[in-house]
Amino acid sequence: MSNDHSLIHRPVSRRLVLAGALAAPAVLRFTGTAHAATTLKISHQFPSSSGEEGDFRDRLVRRFAAEVTKRTNGELAFEVYPGSSLMKTNAQFSALRKGALDLSLYPISYAGGEAPECNIGLMPGLVVSYDQGLAWRTKPVGQAFSEYLEGKGVKILTWVWQAGGVASREKPLIAPEDAKGMKIRGGSREMDMVLQAAGAAVLSLPSNELYVAMQTGACDAGITSSTSLISFRLEELAKQLTTGRGKSYWFMLEPLLISKAVFDKLPKAQQDVMTAVGLEMEAFGKAGAMADDTKVAEVFAKAGAKIHDLDAATVEKWRAIARDTAWKDYSAKSAGCANLMKLAQEVPA
C-alpha cells in the first residue's frame, strides 16, 4: 500500500473546524497519467490527520483514496474534506442518496430520520465486539442491510465499527442507575431511549458539536466513539471517563459510503478497484478503533480524569434495558426493521 505523501496536495485552508484542524481538502492525484482524472469528493465530520498521526477515520479515507488512485493509474482522483468543511454533517447522507456527494465516512445511525432501518447501526447492546460487528458483512444481516441501503441510493465500501465510552463533566456514568438526572448525548435515537428509561434527559447532536455542549453545561456527559473522545478533545472538559476497552454496550457502525448513482456510472474496472480497496481498509479500521479504545484512557488520565472500565454484569444491565425499550421499538417500526433485528441477533458475539 502506498504511503507516498507526495501524492497528497493540500490547498490553502478555508476555515478552522472544531479541534483546531484545518479543513482544507486533500487532493489525491497520481502523477504521470496521460488520462484526465475523474475527481471524487469525500466528506466527513472528523478532524484532519497528518501522515500516520491523527484521527484514524480521516487516515482511512486518505489511504483508500491514495490506493484507488494508484491502482487506477490516476483515472480516479479524490478530494478529502474533513471537519464537515464541504457540507454539514447531517446533510451528507441525503446528498449521497441524490448523487450530490460522492463519498462519506458516516455514522450510519445519523441517517435514521430519513431511513429508519439505519438506526440498527447504533443499537445499544446488539453488537458487543469488533469481530461480531465485522462479521455482519458476510452474514444475512449485512447482506440485507446492504440491499436496503442500495435501495436508498447508498453503497457500503468499508465496514467500520467503533466501540464507545462516556466523558462526564463531573459525575461518572457507568451503570444505568448513574444516569438519573443527568443530561446526556447518547448518539442515536435508540441509545436515547435507553438513557431516558434510566432517568436521564437526552440531547441529540453530532459528536463534533459535543465539545461546545459540554463546555456550556448544556450536556453533563457525552457517549461517543473512543476516537471522537480523543479527536474532539473532551479530556479538556471531563473529570470522568468510562472506556469502551474490553467491554462496551455501545458499538457504532461508521462505514465508508459511496453514492450508488456515482458508483454505477464508473467503468467496471474502477468499480472493482474501489470494492477491493474498500474491503482491504477494514483491517485498518478495526486496528485504529481498538488502538483508540486504549489510547483514550491514557489521554484522559494524563489530563487528570478518573478512568472507569465496564464489567460483564454492568454491560448486561444496559442490554436488559435496551431489549425492553430500543430493541422492541425498532422491531415494531416495520417488517424490514424486525427482520434486521432478528438477523443481527443470529450473529454470535
Results as ranks from 00 to 15, higher is better:
residue 30 F to H: 03
residue 3 N to C: 08
residue 93 F to R: 14
residue 175 A to L: 08
residue 49 S to M: 06
residue 286 K to R: 15
residue 4 D to G: 09
residue 6 S to Y: 05
residue 300 F to A: 02
residue 81 Y to H: 14
residue 144 A to T: 10
residue 167 A to K: 04
residue 281 M to K: 12
residue 321 I to H: 12
residue 214 M to S: 03
residue 55 D to P: 07
residue 123 M to Q: 12
residue 236 E to T: 09
residue 129 S to L: 11
residue 251 F to W: 13
residue 298 E to G: 10
residue 221 A to F: 05
residue 177 E to V: 09
residue 127 V to W: 11
residue 46 F to V: 01
residue 174 I to G: 12
residue 263 F to I: 06
residue 130 Y to T: 06
residue 104 S to R: 04
residue 127 V to Q: 08
residue 43 S to G: 11
residue 307 I to D: 01
residue 25 P to A: 08
residue 150 E to L: 10
residue 306 K to N: 02
residue 15 R to N: 11
residue 58 D to Q: 09
residue 140 P to S: 13
residue 202 V to K: 14
residue 29 R to G: 00
residue 249 Y to D: 06
residue 259 S to R: 10
residue 245 R to L: 02
residue 101 L to R: 03
residue 66 A to N: 10
residue 8 I to C: 02
residue 332 A to C: 00
residue 283 A to Q: 11
residue 89 T to C: 08
residue 203 L to V: 00
residue 194 V to G: 14
residue 223 I to L: 15
residue 182 M to R: 09
residue 318 W to I: 02
residue 220 D to R: 09
residue 49 S to G: 00
residue 220 D to A: 07
residue 90 N to E: 12
residue 59 R to C: 02
residue 186 G to A: 15
residue 19 A to I: 03
residue 197 A to R: 14
residue 39 T to L: 07
residue 175 A to Y: 05
residue 11 P to G: 05
residue 158 T to E: 01
residue 335 A to V: 05
